[in-house]
Structure formats: structure tokens, C-alpha cells
Amino acid sequence: MNDSAAAGPAGQQPPKRQDDEHPGAGRTSAEPAEPQVTPVLSARGLVKRYGHVTAIDGADFDLLPGEVLAVIGDNGAGKTSLIKALTGALVPDEGEIRLHGEPIRFAGPLDARQHGIETVYQDLAVAPSMDIAANMFLGREIRRAGPLGTVFRMLDKKAMRRESAEYMSELGIRLGSIGQTVETLSGGQRQAVAVARAVAWARSVVVMDEPTAALGVKESAQVLDLIRRVRDKGVPVILISHNMPHVFEIADRIHVHRLGRRAALIDPRDYTMPEVVAIMTGALSVTADGGTVVADDDAAAAAGVRRS
């Protein structure tokens, strides 16, 4: 029933996937009971209104340790607002965000970063005329020890180059030289630099916004591979993507966002791509035991799914 998810990485699942404990025939339920493992990042009942528009309408969110969580949703479903709230870029009107189980309020994106949440933006993340090491440490430069650093503010370029190279090789990123400018790299390599930078600094979470959107097939595969390695390092990843094959290839769980809230939280191995698209568009809805009911007959027929 689920060919696409079979491509998922065997033996690389996060330790806390607990399918067997769920009653619903191996299905993750839509409204899961409180997970036994403390989520790295979670939210309950988030609301954000802009005048009459409600961008986030009581959204819940859970990211477990060591997983790749894909966040998908139609355009305008409010997933960007949700991600912004989780990364400090906007302050929700209501609701609670918890980091490692502790309630937290982010004053801004910098605040979130200081709490170990790093975001990889689509293509804005790197400065093309600067070299890889300079990009890795942009905004967090290391200064020389002693008066050279404190009085003359001198950068410790050697240390930054060395540490950059270490991070890169840790992630298995192959590049010619750490001193080459980012503009000499291919799109995939640039994305790799951006990802490496985020991973280097992320203590808690890496958020990736459409990391493969601008890339070709081969480069996308490299970035997906990289995401896997990040996950294997133990840093959970939130992946925002429109690309269903990529989502099914990489995600351990899928958060389906619809009309400003979480419509379902599912295991990609239990659903087909058309079903997930149907959930995303509202043709199907997920019941408490993980089954699906047709919410909109016409839409479901159009999506080519029918099950209950």
C-alpha cells in the first residue's frame, strides 16, 4: 500500500518511533496521546491573528528527538507562520511553546538561535563573495585570544577555517577548499554550506525551508543525504517542503498543516502520496485511530482516493 515510503532509510529510524504501542494497526494517530519521550520542540494551541485573518488557528506541534519531521501544507495553510512562531520570527497571540519540555517565549529570531534553533533559508543564507569559512562563522566570528582580539578585534581566521573544515568533513561534504568563495560552488554545494553552518550551531533543532526547491535532481539527492546525516548526528530536523517524493524519502513523520492547524501527524509508511495530498487538501481527514474518512466526496474522487 505504500511503495514510496519503502524507500525510506531502513535502520535509521529515530529510536522513539512507537508504532507498536499504538492500537490503530500500526497507524500513528492523528491526535496522538502525550508522547512518552519529551519532544525537543512542541507547541500547544498556538494562535496568531492579523486583523481578521487568522494565520495560526490553535496549532499543535511536536518534534521528537532525532527525527526528520516534514511539515507540509497547501499554500496559505499557514505553515510559514507556524515555522516563524517556532523560530522566533513572530510572537504568537496565544498558546505555549516548549523547548526540551520547558515553556519558552522567543523575543526574536536571534533569541531562538541562542537557544540552539537554526534555520536554513531557501537561498538567502550565504554571502556569495565570501569564502566558506567566513560564511560558516558569519555573525559569530572567533577573535584571537589576548589583546589582539579584545583591543584590535582581530579575527582568528585559522581557527575558523579549521573548525569549518571539521564540520564539513563530519557531514561528509566534499568541497575543494575551505578558502574558496561560495559563488564558485554549485547550487547544491551552496546549500550544503548553509546546512553545515546551521548544523554546526544548532544544539536543538535545524529548520530547513524548501532546501531542495532550487536544486536539480542530483543535487537534491545530495542535500537529502546530508539531511539524513544531520539526523544521524542526533539533531532533529524540521523540513518544510512541497516536494512529496522528497518528503516520503526522508521524513520519519509528516505534520500535515491545513487551515492554520495540524490536520494530521502521520507516519509516511502508512499512507500513500495521494492520500497525504488528499489530507492536505481536506478531501480526507484522519480519525483518532489513524483511519481516514472521506470528508469531501468530490474532492476525494478527484484526488483518486477512497478509503475509510
Binding site: R161, R162, S164, A165, M168, S169, G172, I173, R174, L175, G176, S177, I178, G179, Q180, K218, A221, Q222, L224, D225, L226
Partner: peptide, 15 residues
């Protein structure tokens, strides 16, 4: 698609 895991990074500056 698996990228080779042998890193080819030189930490020193170009010549």
C-alpha cells in the same frame, strides 16, 4: 545516491 564520505577539504589557504 550516496555521496562519497572521503572529505577533500584543505583547511589551508589557497597558494
Amino acid at each position: 545516491m550516496t555521496a562519497s564520505t572521503t572529505p577533500l577539504i584543505r583547511a589551508k589557504e589557497p597558494a
